[in-house]
Structure formats: structure tokens, C-alpha cells
């Protein structure tokens, strides 16, 4: 134990400020992905009180849809269209496809279980997750596929512009793709906040989350609201999938499991049901993971992350922004 601690301190010293910033940058980019996924968990949990285990796999499907578009246009080396339209189409297809998938999952796996005991939809969610993962394994033959985004837009086998630095901080470049990921994540989140707080649909969503029965008595079509929630949540996850593909690159059928797990905890840490909480905590989880990788070592990083998250859930299960759940008797 002591030894581990000394190692960590050594590591912090040797990496210095530059290293610390590098980890900060990585953490924020990774964290924006977690935030986007966590939003989905928090919205779905908020409205159905359901831990949608399959949400991480929707993200995986999004990543594959993006890859499918890339391949359909000829792959990263020589796509048939320009860089910007290509990326836009990738996002559009992945987001739409994931959204439809999410709605389908809700309609066929969860809706029949509205009045079932609490454990039933959870087990169904487990089943959906497992089904999606292994279907993906079947169709991808279990291989990893790489976006090879560094080649996108490059001419004659040269590297493309995605990994060019935009600016440098403490000797560390911040690349185009990193700006793209964080920028589009922030845009999507802003759009979501606008939707939830300003539109009729958002109002209906909040009402349904608060009290489904009362909302339906007030003339809100709660089934449609729930479907829309799943659609929006899955759209965000699909977008995160493409971002992951562009930024990190390797997509494979199991990628949704761990990411989903971490994102769900981000949702819990942020206070389940709280949209701002999920955003903040997603970044927090990304930072924890990034620093754990940098200072403790890659092989321990998952253990550190999960350890911290378990502790957090036990000490403060209502999360950072959540209110104490009341149970009236």
C-alpha cells in the first residue's frame, strides 16, 4: 500500500505540470462522451425509474453505424465526399439509427412491463443489453474495426486535418478532433437543456417524470413522451458513439458495456434525474479515469474508478445534485 502511494507521488512528480494538463485534457474529452451517455441514463431513469442496461449498447451501435457510413463512402483513406459532409452524414445516420433503436427497445421490451414488479424490466434490460452485444458480435464477427480518423481528409495517404493541433497549452497540443468532440457535446447538451426547459415536450417530460399517472390524467400522452425520451437519449448516445470512433477509433461489440457502466455511475454521482448533474459528473468520471491512468497505471485504472464510484454511491447515494428521495407511508 505504501509502495503504491510512493509510486503515485513519483509519477505525479515526473509527469510535472505538462503531464497534469495532458491528463486534464484527456479527461475532459473522455468525460464529454460519458456526459452524453450519462444524460440518456438520467433521462430514462428520471422518467421510468428504470436502469436501462442497454443504453451503453445503443452507444456501441451508434459507433458502428458511423463506421458503416464511413465504409459505405469508401473508407477513411479515400472517401467519395468531402470531410465535413462526411462527418455530418455519419453523425446524422448514427443519431437517427440509435434513436430508432432506442424507441424500439422501449416499445417492445419495456412497455409491456409497465405494471410488472420492479425487478422485471431490469432483467429485461439485462436481456436487451446482452442481445444487442452479441448480435453485434455476430455481425462483426467479433473483430475490432478502426475509424482511422487520422487519415480522414488527407490526400495521397497523408494524415488528414483531424489530428492537427488547434492550440497548445503547456506544450500540449489540443487537436481538432478534441475540439470537435467537446464542442459538439456542449452544443448537444445546450440543445437538450433548451428542449427540456423551454418546449412543450420538455414540460410534458418533466411532468411525466414527476408523476406519470397524474400526467396522463392531465391529458399528456405519456407513452409518447416516454418514446420521445428514449429517442432523445439514444440520439445522444449515438452521437457519442461517432465521437468515440473519430477520437479513439476502435469500435467493437463490447465497448458499450464498460462505457455504459461508467456513464451510469456518472448519472448517479450527478444525482439521478438531474440533467446538469449528469453533465458535470460525466466529466468528473472522465477526469478520475484519466488521472488514474496517468498516476496509478492503466491496469489499475478501472479498479480505482470503480472503487471511487462504489464509495461515492454508498456514502452519498443521492448524488451531488440529487434530492433525498422521499417515500411516503
Amino acid at each position: 500500500m505504501h509502495l503504491l502511494l510512493f509510486n503515485i507521488i513519483d509519477q505525479i512528480r515526473s509527469l510535472g505540470w505538462g503531464g497534469a494538463f495532458e491528463l486534464l485534457r484527456n479527461g475532459i474529452v473522455l468525460g464529454s462522451l460519458y456526459s452524453l451517455i450519462a444524460l440518456g441514463y438520467t433521462m430514462i431513469y428520471g422518467i421510468l425509474k428504470l436502469l436501462n442496461f442497454a443504453h451503453g449498447d445503443v452507444y456501441m451501435v451508434g459507433a458502428f453505424l458511423g463506421f458503416g457510413v464511413l465504409t459505405a463512402f469508401g473508407g477513411a483513406l479515400n472517401p467519395g465526399i468531402g470531410l465535413v459532409p462526411l462527418i455530418i452524414i455519419m453523425f446524422a445516420v448514427a443519431m437517427l439509427g440509435s434513436g430508432v433503436l432506442g424507441v424500439g427497445i422501449e416499445r417492445f421490451a419495456y412497455r409491456p412491463l409497465r405494471n410488472a414488479p420492479r425487478i422485471a424490466p431490469l432483467i429485461a434490460a439485462l436481456g436487451v443489453s446482452f442481445f444487442l452485444e452479441n448480435s453485434a458480435q455476430l455481425m462483426t464477427n467479433g473483430f475490432q474495426y478502426n475509424y482511422d480518423a487520422f487519415q480522414l481528409g488527407g490526400k495521397n495517404g497523408n494524415f488528414g486535418p483531424l489530428f492537427d493541433p488547434v492550440f497548445t497549452v503547456a506544450g500540449n497540443p489540443v487537436t481538432v478532433v478534441q475540439v470537435l468532440v467537446v464542442g459538439s457535446a456542449v452544443t448537444l447538451m445546450a440543445a437538450l437543456i433548451f428542449l427540456v426547459s423551454r418546449t412543450r415536450l420538455g414540460k410534458a417530460m418533466r411532468a411525466t417524470a414527476f408523476d406519470q399517472e397524474a400526467a396522463s390524467m392531465m391529458g399528456i400522452d405519456t407513452d409518447r413522451v416516454i418514446s420521445s425520451t428514449f429517442f432523445i437519449a439514444s440520439v445522444l448516445a449515438g452521437a457519442a458513439g461517432v465521437m468515440y470512433g473519430l477520437y479513439i477509433g476502435t469500435t467493437f461489440y463490447f465497448m458499450g458495456f464498460l462505457a455504459g457502466l461508467k456513464a451510469f455511475t456518472a448519472a448517479v454521482v450527478g444525482g439521478i434525474g438531474s440533467i446538469v448533474g449528469a453533465m458535470v459528473a460525466g466529466v468528473l468520471v472522465g477526469l478520475i479515469e484519466s488521472y488514474a491512468i496517468g498516476y496509478v497505471g492503466g491496469q489499475w485504472s478501472d479498479i480505482v474508478v470503480f472503487g471511487i464510484l462504489i464509495l461515492f454511491m454508498i456514502v452519498r447515494p443521492t448524488g451531488l445534485f440529487g434530492a433525498q428521495a422521499i417515500q411516503k407511508v
Partner: peptide
């Protein structure tokens, strides 16, 4: 197995 879990639950 995944499909069975869903089908059985519903």
C-alpha cells in the same frame, strides 16, 4: 439467452 430473458419477462 438475451432474447429469452426479454421474451420471458414480457
Amino acid at each position: 439467452f438475451g432474447a429469452m430473458l426479454i421474451a420471458l419477462m414480457t
